[in-house]
Amino acid sequence: MSVLDVLKSEMVRVADSQKKQLAPLTDDLVLLNSGLDSLCFAILVASLEDKLGVDPFTERDDVQFPVTLGDFARFYEAAIKVA
């Protein structure tokens, strides 16, 4: 599974468990319009850390927060490469 696939399936799982309506997961989806709130993102980042073994939010110094789903996937891909 690609990073993007893992990300999408985790977003679906978190949205489902938090009873949130998820927007269609396109590459240019603005994360804040995805239907997930802060708590959902917090849970998402924790479960991605368990699944992918990285937490780019904490590990990287040049913290440029991702805006779109595509950015989000690239953010994780870059962190995995470094790890």
Binding site: S38, A46, F57
Partner: peptide
């Protein structure tokens, strides 16, 4: 609590 970069902890 578990440390979390979005909400501090979860």
């Amino acid at each position: 609590g578990r440390r979390n970069p979005i909400t501090g902890e979860i």
